[in-house]
Design a protein around this nucleic acid. Structure first.
Lengths: 198, 198
DNA sequence: TTCTTTACATACGATACGTATGTCAATCTG
DNA sequence: CAGATTGACATACGTATCGTATGTAAAGAA
């Protein structure tokens, strides 16, 4: 009855650890979160951790990857519903700004992630996300909608501006009000990339 | 002969500690840098550290403040030499991108700083810098050069884009070549703020 | 069934932070 | 000028946490 395959068990413990790590890292921050506490919450010990993820960084990498993948999926879903490709790009950027207001994203992906894992553009997840926006930009350039700038550079600047704006919004005293200002300015600045500012 | 005033001595030890911390944090990163090693290099012990800066974070805050102040000064000096106020703003942004290629700036201010000290916009130094660009933007709006967007939001987006671009440049395999692409795209995107894209 | 390997737990050592305490010189006080 | 006091820093200590080395029991192969 309790007979599940080994691989299933492993995936379950990995999931349990990642789940515990997400909340621990989000609440206490990476450096303050204790591996002992973390694993205890998951009903395990540090042994499981070092066996599955190598070290503390490895666990963070797994957590970041999961969150980032969710973000990319959500952003893409939102962007693909837009009227035009350009509006899709804008909606995607705005979605990033809004998502980054969640403590998990904020603390783990934007603050601790870069410090512990290094430049985000090297992460597999971030590469996927960036690649997506890059392709959108590329397509917009081909259509003559966006000026013929370097697609990668444009994508990175858009992402960077969006993510940075979220930090501001989240840290502000009145997030919902600041969010409007941030989104406005974001859309305005982004029009610089347009061939015809319309 | 060795009689210096107490305050002079204190300033000197603080300076020695900050100097040692700058190189240690830049080379090993904040978390890996050992307080024992760090103080030993400065010819002191951890006692001096905790007396002068409270704790490890306090030392990082002092280091960040120093570096950031230097950055603001350099950026302003460069920006004020420009032909027009708008070109000054652009030059300032580009200066940030270039400065962030230095390991000290990169590692300490952009990576560890936010993770350990929290949102950069709350730092006294960053506030000064941001305030400067904010005022520039404000002035440009008054002159009708820049669209009437929220000045703070615009300043933050510009800063964010610039700093993010630097991370990309510094982490790339061919920094000098990537720098050109980043600066190009930055200037292009920033024109979105202009009233008349010219 | 027996042997091997996998998945995790337990035990251990090392490092490093923060605090509590000690010391010595500089300044203040009478 | 002598004694008291404060401040600047060093030393000593306790504790927490990470990573590894070792142990163990169950799953799968032979």
């Amino acid at each position: 009855m309790t007979s599940r395959r080994r691989s299933e068990m492993v995936e379950e413990t990995r999931a349990k650890l990642i789940r515990a790590a997400r909340s621990a890292f989000a609440e206490k921050g990476y450096s303050t979160a204790s591996m002992d506490d973390l694993t205890a919450v998951a009903g395990l010990t540090r042994g499981a951790l070092y066996h599955n993820f190598g070290d503390k960084r490895g666990l963070l990498a797994a957590v970041v990857d999961q969150i980032d993948a969710e973000m990319a999926e959500r952003a893409h879903a939102i962007g693909s519903q837009a009227e035009s490709p350009w509006e899709g790009l804008m909606a995607e950027g705005v979605a990033y700004i809004e998502m980054a207001m969640e403590p998990e994203v904020q603390r783990i992906v934007l603050l601790d992630g870069p410090a512990v894992l290094g430049d985000p553009s090297k992460w597999p997840s971030q590469n996927r996300c960036l690649h997506a926006t890059m392709q959108t930009v590329q397509a917009l350039i081909a259509q003559g909608v966006v000026k013929p700038v370097d697609a990668e550079a444009a994508a990175r600047l858009l992402n960077g501006a969006a993510l940075n704006a979220s930090l501001w919004v989240a840290a502000s005293d009145n997030p919902s009000e600041v969010l409007v200002r941030a989104v406005d300015a974001f859309r305005c600045m982004a029009t610089g990339l347009l061939e015809t500012p319309a």
